[in-house]
Each structure stands twice: as C-alpha cells, then as structure tokens.
C-alpha cells in the first residue's frame, strides 16, 4: 500500500500519472481506517501502479524534452550545426555518402568472413593437445595477446602504410582497401579466436569422452562434436564483435580510402557544417540495428529448434 505522501511526490513529479496515484492512495488510506482492508489493498495496488508509471513515463518524457530543447537552444545552433537542412536535402551529398558507405560495407563483409574462419583456426591451434604442438600453441598465444593489445588504428597504419613502403612480395602491392581488410582481420581475428576458445572449452569433457569412445579421432571429435556445439554457444558474443567490426571499418578513412567518413569530412570542409557526420551516423544506425535484430532472430529460432543440451 502506497502512503499518500509518496502519492503526493509522484503527482508532483509527473502529474498525468501521479495524480491518480495520489487519489488512489488517499482512498486506500480512508478505506483502511474504516476497516475495509481488502478494498484498501486494491486501491493501494492501483496507487503503486500509477506511481511506477509516474517514474517510468515521467523520466522518459523529461529526457526526450531535454534533448529536443538542446536542438533549439541558442537559436537552434545545434540544429544548424548537425542537421543543416540544405545539406540534408542535397541529393548529391547523399549519393556521395552512400557510395562511401558501400565501401565500409564491403570491407565489413569480406573481413567478417575472413575473421570467422581465421579465428576458428587460431582457436583450434591454441587448443591442440600434446607436447609436440607446444611451439604452435605458443605462437598462436603470442599472436592473440599482441593483437588484442594493439589499437586497431595502429595496425591499420602499420599494415596499410608500412607494407607498401617495405615493398614486400605478395603483401606489398595490395589496394588500400585490401590492406584495411587485412589489418582489421588480424585485429578482430585475435578477439574472435578468444570467443571461440571460450566456447570450445565450455563443452563438457564427457562429450569428448563419448566421441572418442566411439572410435572417432581427435580431429573428428573436434570437427563433428565439439566445434559445432561451441559455435552455437558463442553466437551472442560473436554478434557483439561483428558490430564492433562494422563500426571500426571507419578506420579505413585514415589511410585515405574514400569511405563514408572521408566523404563526410570533405563535405564538412566544403560547407562548414557537421551535418554530413550525422548522415554517416545515420547510415551506420540503419544497417546495424536490423542486422542485430536479424542475428538475434536467427539465434532464437535455432534455440527453439534444439533446446538446451548438456
């Protein structure tokens, strides 16, 4: 049962929901004094509900109102800086931005596929059994530790600017886009291999015992029993890393590829408005959100099909 004092606070905080809360709490109070305890509880329950609405809806309304206020503060300067109408309605600006964004998408898609395969390979190498494979395990561990420590932007510089200067065979003559894909794959491969490794290690040893006892070899056990279960388990954390990778494709702009961020910078320099950056942000939003929801949907569907499992 809500006391009328809490009801009063709620009604002051956000009257549309708070006043009903106050009314019900007063009524509950009166009924309780008359000894009609069940009815009093009913009104108390209603008062509590309204009070929660007062908090939930009220807070939301105030936050949104503050943001809108910001947009129009100082004679609408925020709106002019970030959402200049002339640029927002400029078809050629959009055309240029989308063309740039297509490069980000391509980098993301190609790097993603490479990362998925490469990271699984690294994870499996790190988990190879026996003393003979110790050097390989060590090598893989060094790679993972190092590339998780390096900032992605540093790797892009080192790979994208350094390799062409060193003029190495094979990797000395790639396009800038290929260098960025290479650099991002190295960085994200290290992260994702750790995700895979955690997944593989989470498979109970009894699954391995069952597979081996049927005569399957170590590699067959990994391939048919352990890795498929591990991959299913790590989809949610993988999803997180995918989104990170998608955003980090913006790094491509530092070595002069005309991606969406570079193009936004050009427009900004030409027109003196940050609106193009807002447009770039919007493009990332438009792609990332449906992508996330789609992967979640896939995951839920599969979970529904093969529930649980030890």
């Amino acid at each position: 049962m809500l006391t009328y004092r809490a009801g009063a606070v709620a009604s002051l905080f956000f009257p549309p929901a708070g006043i009903p809360a106050l009314v019900h709490s007063l009524r509950a109070q009166r009924l309780a004094e008359k000894g009609e305890i069940e009815l009093a509880r009913e009104h108390g329950e209603k008062a509590r509900n309204w009070a929660w609405y007062s908090v939930g809806v009220g807070l939301t309304v105030y936050v949104v109102a503050a943001l809108v206020g910001l947009l129009f503060a100082n004679h609408g300067s925020v709106r002019v800086v970030y959402f200049a109408w002339s640029i927002l309605t400029d078809g050629s600006a959009w055309h240029s931005m989308i063309k740039g964004f297509w490069i980000n998408i391509q980098v993301f898609l190609i790097a993603e596929v490479i990362v998925l395969v490469w990271a699984l390979f690294v994870a499996v190498v790190r988990l190879l059994p026996g003393p003979a494979c110790r050097p390989l395990r060590f090598l893989a561990t060094v790679y993972v530790d190092a590339f998780r420590a390096f900032p992605a932007i540093l790797v892009v510089y080192i790979v994208g600017l350094g390799l062409p200067q060193a003029n190495l065979p094979l990797v000395g003559h790639l396009s800038d886009m290929q260098y960025v894909i290479f650099a991002l794959s190295l960085t994200y491969g290290a992260y994702v291999s750790e995700v895979y490794r955690a997944g593989i290690e989470s498979i109970h040893w009894s699954q391995v015992a069952a597979a081996r006892s049927l005569g399957l070899s170590y590699s067959q056990t990994m391939r048919f029993v352990v890795v498929p279960q591990a991959v299913r388990r790590v989809v949610p954390p993988l999803l997180n890393d995918f989104i990170g990778l998608q955003k980090d494709t913006a790094i491509i702009s530092v070595i002069g590829v005309l991606d969406v961020v570079s193009r936004a910078r050009f427009i900004n320099n030409a027109k003196g408005s940050l609106t193009a950056y807002s447009m770039a942000a919007l493009l990332f939003l438009v792609v990332t959100i449906p992508f996330t929801r789609w992967l979640e949907w896939l995951q839920n569907r599969r979970q529904a099909r093969t529930q649980g499992g030890r």
Binding site: Q207, A210, P228, G309
Partner: peptide
Amino acid sequence: VFQSFNLFPH
C-alpha cells in the same frame, strides 16, 4: 555407455 548418456545434443 555412461551414467549421464552423453548424447550429442546438436
């Protein structure tokens, strides 16, 4: 055959 079955759940 094990106490806990150990079928492959996938």
